[in-house]
Design a protein around this nucleic acid. Sequence first.
DNA 1: TTGCTAACCTAGTGACCGCTAGGTTAGTGA
DNA 2: TCACTAACCTAGCGGTCACTAGGTTAGCAA
Lengths: 214, 214
Amino acid sequence: MPGSTDRKKNRLTAEERRAAIVEAAVRLFAEKGFRGTTTRELAAAVGVSEPVLYQHFATKGDLYTAIIEAICRHRDRDRDGLLELARHAEDDEAFFSRLAELILEWYDEQPEVVRLLLFSALEEHDLKDRFVETQVAMLYEILTEYLERRMDKGVFRRMDPYLAARAFTGMVSHQGMAKVVFGIDDLRGSRQEIARKIADIFVNGIRSHGAQGA
Amino acid sequence: MPGSTDRKKNRLTAEERRAAIVEAAVRLFAEKGFRGTTTRELAAAVGVSEPVLYQHFATKGDLYTAIIEAICRHRDRDRDGLLELARHAEDDEAFFSRLAELILEWYDEQPEVVRLLLFSALEEHDLKDRFVETQVAMLYEILTEYLERRMDKGVFRRMDPYLAARAFTGMVSHQGMAKVVFGIDDLRGSRQEIARKIADIFVNGIRSHGAQGA
DNA sequence: TTGCTAACCTAGTGACCGCTAGGTTAGTGA
DNA sequence: TCACTAACCTAGCGGTCACTAGGTTAGCAA
């Protein structure tokens, strides 16, 4: 049986090699974009020759598609946790603070996915649409649902829930984008503290004037 | 004297041709990025042959630098108007609403500059640093100054002015980014109305709880 | 009308791109 | 030990890239 857990081999099984290629491709495409990455340097990063890439992926574009699939599959697992959080949330500050923290965490821990997504949007690849249709749509669904529920209770002021949702995600992800894309990281405090402060501004901004303060 | 206002000529003066090249380059680089744009299609877009490009710019990179200069010079003219706005502002809602409107206007009217900036940041070109050091720094200077002034007066709550400034610009520019980069434009209402609603959320979010409501 | 020159073009250059034909070898099962 | 095969490599294909040497011509001055 080829390719068990043996570490002495310098030949991998097809499955292992494929995974290694995808991993290196995510790193390189995130760093230099699709057009900016050559199959030569990709092969060098994996530690094999170019034809090995083409045994697993017919074209460079197919490799890009495979990466998209891998990322989307990985991110779909976050879905359930987020829905759970929204359903059982009772304290507004705590809910938005936790949500902000999760988003900031994403920027911190997966900057290569953020860059990949931006490259994809600018270069008009498919990841953009896949991402918007699944991840973004889910986040907005959760947010607008929560906001409308609290508006109905009179805790939040009546307003366009989509605008409010975008305002919130904007406050948070702009912070993440500044760090990942522009290298600006000048805010004091931990990720949790920053998330809490942003949530505080937002919740106070949409709360009915009669309701209790922070 | 060559190259006056005559429209029948199909030969331009060096100055006119140079300007035409820069104009076409801004459009193409914004659409497809630096790496994604070839000198062939650039020449075709201008309506000349490739060597003409190289009579004005020694390399493709030099042309990119020239574009950066042109954009930065153009945007520096907005500086005075913004400073004026901040100094004489009395009504908080009006100030932040106007500021939001100006930022949204920028995304609407110069989407190619936005894309150029993002490409530049991802591809690690110079426009990123030039932009951050001038435009972004100026905007944050104006915002933090205004915020600290209002905090001193007790109208706004005490908080990190940089975090508040980033939260505000985030709310606004995330909306612009969604439209320009991801093609999402689902909010109802005019640009002015959206700006007003965003400013409303922000000002209520940072105002002292004893102060007057909207 | 003609001569001059700045603006332009044709026709390439070497380098590197994505991709492939065909040969080599490491690791396994018998 | 040896044969088999899946995993690998060397060498190079046609095409396109950024860039250029050297010739052509439009448009102005006289």
